[in-house]
Amino acid sequence: MAKRKLRIMVAKPGLDGHDRGARVLARCFRDAGYETIYTGCHQTPEQIAAAAIQEDIDCVGLSCMSGAHKYLFPECVKQIRALGGDDIQIIGGGIIPKQDYQLLYDAGLKGIFTPGITLDDIVAWINENIVPNVKE
């Protein structure tokens, strides 16, 4: 009877507290009709993974501004997979130089979003690429 709702998590791994982007994104996701879980700043990859599993998340959006994404993003993917979240898609955003893209895609990120992209672009990308990870 009711339509499946997309459940999305916006998470900030690491110690950087620059949450302007993450918070703008969380609002944008709410306005796009998603149920959006926001973890707040300063999360370890383990905490993010556990939250993603408990909340039955379809897509985790990671945000990092500190330059530590090369460690933090792959670690988040690893931890989410370790808890059995094989069907959870992971995307990342923040200050990420081009030269790091391949490393992140190889680690399992499905999309990377950097400064200059519009909110509508991100929502369009999600609508196209993320489906609720429930079978029926």
């Binding site: 690491g14 110690l15 950087d16 300063h42 370890t44 500190s66 530590a68 933090l72 670690e75």
Partner: peptide, 20 residues
Amino acid sequence: FPTLMGYDTDDPKARGECGK
């Protein structure tokens, strides 16, 4: 970031951030 947040470089929360 570890220094800014009051963590030493070897704290688990500081992984990947040192000197960045």
